[in-house]
């Protein structure tokens, strides 16, 4: 079932404008994480470049519904320029509230939380 988002909805704005879309070129200081939803096949990929404990560049790619794409853009807007601890702070609840996600789209927030926490765990090693 398609969701309809009015133009003022945060999902709609991020879906249309997709700030932070793209991919970082492979480099020693670039990490990539990808999560896939078993429910609907949606895929979210996040690339981060880390320098001195700071996420200096963050980019996303997404295959999925508008909410999934908006979650990728939301991650970039919240993480770029922050310390790596910000990755651990990403939560389904924060995404669902920030993007006013319908209950049927919370699995998109789960993907975002998964990639963020995966990157955090790998950076902590």
């Amino acid at each position: 079932m398609s969701e309809y988002y009015p133009e003022s909805h945060p999902v709609w704005r991020l879906f249309r404008e997709t700030p932070g879309a793209g991919e970082l070129a492979e480099a020693p200081d670039v990490l990539v994480s990808e999560a896939r939803s078993p429910a609907d096949g949606a895929v979210l990929r996040l690339s981060v470049q880390v320098m001195d404990g700071v996420l200096v560049q963050v980019r996303f790619k997404a295959f999925g519904c508008p909410a999934c794409i908006a979650c990728g853009a939301w991650l970039v807007s919240r993480l770029e320029g922050q310390g790596t601890e910000a990755l651990a702070g990403v939560s389904v609840v924060a995404l669902a509230e920030g993007l006013q996600l319908p209950a049927t789209r919370r699995h998109c927030a789960v993907l975002a939380e998964e990639v963020a926490h995966d990157l955090h765990a790998r950076l902590a090693r």
Partner: peptide, 11 residues
């Protein structure tokens, strides 16, 4: 290939 229909409908 490579797109999600729901996003195509919305976009």
């Amino acid at each position: 290939a490579g797109i999600d229909g729901e996003s195509l409908v919305a976009g």
